[in-house]
Design a binder for these strands. Structure first.
Lengths: 200, 200
DNA sequence: GCAAATTAATGATTTATTCAAG
DNA sequence: CTTGAATAAATCATTAATTTGC
């Protein structure tokens, strides 16, 4: 543990940034020549060796896959749970409004391979209180043309988080009380998982 | 007249402070549960919806990155300029310093004994077949243990990276210009959307 | 000082990538 | 090769800052 040199490489933000850029640009397993060049270049920003670059790409690729796999798993489980919840009603309501998605939302089958719930946030987000304004706007954007350009917002929000509390039953003037206990902002929990979701 | 609801959310100072604090504490992409809680909590300080929280984190994160990227780009440009001034000297020094790469560079022997690399990575760096025909076995995990995941080249979307390879002449110490052309990655990805990209 | 005009910030949408499963 | 799901990047749009001429 010589103070002068850490036992392992610690990438500087700049190095990390560049590596990530490269990764995103398609590089996965750089060859010798590439590693050499990368290393040379990154050495501008701090101490670094070829093996660091090599390992970085190895690890990054692997962890990328791992992360996605985990998310998929969690998502599947969530999906299954939600299936048993008030989806029927919810999607029915949505369908009334978004006939555009009728074909897509096949809730009638019950099998509903429905992903989560896509569509406009307004509904899920501001259920209570006359916030109708935003709602309309969102809707307009949602289906601008005849062509459903794929799922629009679905992609984005496409997820559980909007699912929660589709509020008709939620207190119109909910008091943000528990927030304090819910928010140990500094809590390390929030960082990754948060909430008591079992999973994994 | 009624509040004439603004068309978009305008965070109160308190909300902003809390959001920034959370961001600082490490939260980047809150999930459904987190967003729900955050929204509830912030609603105490003013009107707010879940999507606002969602967007806020998206934007904040993106613009944070953007800022860093711009800074990096500037640095890169600066250093590239400096490089043009000191290329010769720089590469000379590099060669002197990186003894471990001597073996790497000397791939003709194929038996580089690099003390620095714990896992015999040097081999994996070696362009196989010598003479710069490395295009075949890029990643040859010769280091012990079972078979590697073959060399799935992945996609490697048309990027010059692979092509560059040690060309036919493969200048062993050719022009240091390499570095310059090596990182035009900025051209495609970093893009440096000029701070003043106005209407086009 | 003070609005109209202009520019910078930032909220909200849309488009493009990414990985891996079918 | 196509598609689903998630996200990041790019873009659009509106509000806040600020500059400017009076």
């Amino acid at each position: 543990m010589s103070p002068a040199a850490s036992s392992r490489w610690c990438p500087t933000p700049e190095q990390l940034m560049i590596l990530e850029e490269m990764y995103r640009s398609g590089i996965r397993t750089p060859n010798a020549s590439q590693i050499q060049k990368i290393t040379t270049h990154l050495s501008f920003y701090g101490k670094i060796e070829g093996k660091n670059v090599f390992y970085w790409f190895q690890n990054h690729k692997a962890r990328d896959r791992q992360k996605l796999r985990r998310k998929l798993t969690r998502q599947l489980q969530l999906q299954q749970q939600q299936q048993q919840q008030q989806q029927q009603l919810y999607y029915y309501q949505l369908n009334q409004q978004n006939h555009q998605f009728q074909g897509y939302l096949d809730y009638s089958t019950g099998s509903s391979t429905l992903p989560q719930f896509p569509y406009d946030i307004s509904n899920s987000f501001l259920p209570q209180g006359g916030g109708g304004v935003a709602s309309t706007q969102v809707m307009n954007y949602t289906w601008k043309e005849d062509i459903p350009q794929r799922l629009e917002m679905e992609k984005m929000y496409g997820h559980d988080w909007m699912m929660m509390e589709t509020g008709p039953s939620s207190p119109p003037c909910a008091r943000p009380l528990q927030t304090l206990e819910l928010f140990p902002i500094t809590a390390t929990n929030l960082k990754e998982e948060g909430t008591t979701s079992k999973q994994f």
